[in-house]
């Protein structure tokens, strides 16, 4: 069904614009038109459908559900809720405060915060559409494992010691009534439609530029980096490439919507899967602006630890994936 977009791109780029198919510009333009059209169409339809189903879920209900759970199960639930709720890094601080003052362990909250920007319906849909279900599953699994392991580690070192003092106090007192705002109101179909329409507008307004930037970068990589260059120079998966990719990527910020087209392009160019995923997930999971925001609730020490945890986790994930790649994708 998605081939229709390749057809559309051929029509626009080669027939209407008259670009030649075998030139860098022609290939880049084709990639750009095909991916943009496909992504926008997928986004429109799927955000709406998923928002209809998700209309009654909000952070207050998630908090009520997470409060007082067993820890191990808590990390899993934290990541799961991170995956199914939409989330923008500008709300990370209020969410962090809300969870912590309901005595939800810092690790569980962190599992939520790490997983949330990496995995959501938009990411899954795009990955599936552009890269196939195998990579989508790998991506989801890595996102969950990194979120849960990162959270568990922070609790193991008792990271709540490094919260900002006002919040450490709120955590100790458990000041928020966790049950507050948790009533599950039944929504009419009409209310769900209103919510879904708003979601589509809002998410679209937020991500359209990331899509263009991401697809533009992907297209430039695809059309202009000489074929085989990435494969020859970075295709061997030397051990240092993964941590180097992660260090470069963590401070960078892009939205997941912008990263998927870049991922597609890098993989098509022969960059090993582990290196690609490590790079892309690091740009999405954490960013310099987000660390600045989190400084309001965490002391420097905890921020540095969090940075370290993400660095180690994504590097390990990249190494493991590079090592098992030949087993996953038998050469055809």
């Amino acid at each position: 069904m998605l081939e229709v977009f390749a057809y559309l791109a051929t029509l626009v780029v080669y027939d209407a614009l008259g670009l030649a198919p075998d030139t860098p510009l022609g290939e880049a333009a084709h990639f750009f038109v095909e991916s943009t059209a496909k992504i926008f169409a997928l986004l429109l339809v799927l955000i709406y459908v998923i928002a209809l189903a998700r209309a009654s879920l909000n952070v207050e209900r998630v908090r009520a559900f997470l409060a007082g759970r067993n820890r191990i199960f808590g990390y899993f639930l934290g990541s799961t809720f991170g995956a199914v709720t939409p989330f923008c890094s500008c709300s990370s601080v209020p969410v962090f405060i809300g969870f912590t003052s309901a005595r939800i362990p810092v690790g569980v909250t962190t599992a939520f915060l790490i997983t949330s920007p990496m995995i959501n319906e938009v990411a899954v849909v795009l990955l599936w559409g552009l890269l196939g279900w195998e990579l989508t599953l790998i991506y989801i699994a890595v996102g969950f494992v990194v979120g849960m392991a990162g959270g568990a580690f922070l609790d193991a070192i008792r990271a709540e010691r490094y919260l900002q003092p006002f919040l450490a106090k709120a955590y100790a007192q458990g000041s928020a009534a966790a049950a507050g705002g948790a009533e599950a109101r039944r929504l009419s179909l009409r209310e769900r439609h209103t919510f879904a329409a708003q979601e589509v507008q809002e998410i679209f307004r937020r991500v359209w530029k990331w899509v263009l930037i991401g697809v533009g970068l992907g297209a430039a990589l695809y059309g202009f980096v000489p074929e085989g260059w990435i494969e020859q120079n970075l295709g061997d998966g030397a051990w240092w490439q993964v941590p180097a990719a992660v260090v470069v990527a963590i401070p960078l910020y892009t939205n997941i919507t912008g990263v998927v087209p870049v991922m597609e392009s890098l993989i098509l160019q022969g960059l090993p899967i582990g290196t690609t995923l490590a790079f892309c997930m690091s740009t999405v999971a954490a960013s310099f602006p987000e660390f600045v925001l989190l400084k309001q609730v965490m002391q420097w020490r905890l921020l540095a630890i969090l940075f370290g945890v993400l660095l180690v986790a994504f590097t390990l994930a990249g190494w493991i994936l590079n090592a098992v790649e030949p087993l996953l994708f038998a050469p055809s």
Binding site: E60, P94, I97, G98, F166, L167, S175, Q296
Partner: peptide, 27 residues
């Protein structure tokens, strides 16, 4: 804009509106 106010009023979704010390709207 400070995070302490969010703790004080137990608010998790911003923007939130407080009228005469009562939270009337969030998110």
């Amino acid at each position: 804009t400070g995070p302490e106010a969010l703790v004080h009023y137990s608010v998790m979704s911003t923007p939130a509106v407080v009228v005469d010390d009562q939270v009337v709207h969030t998110g």
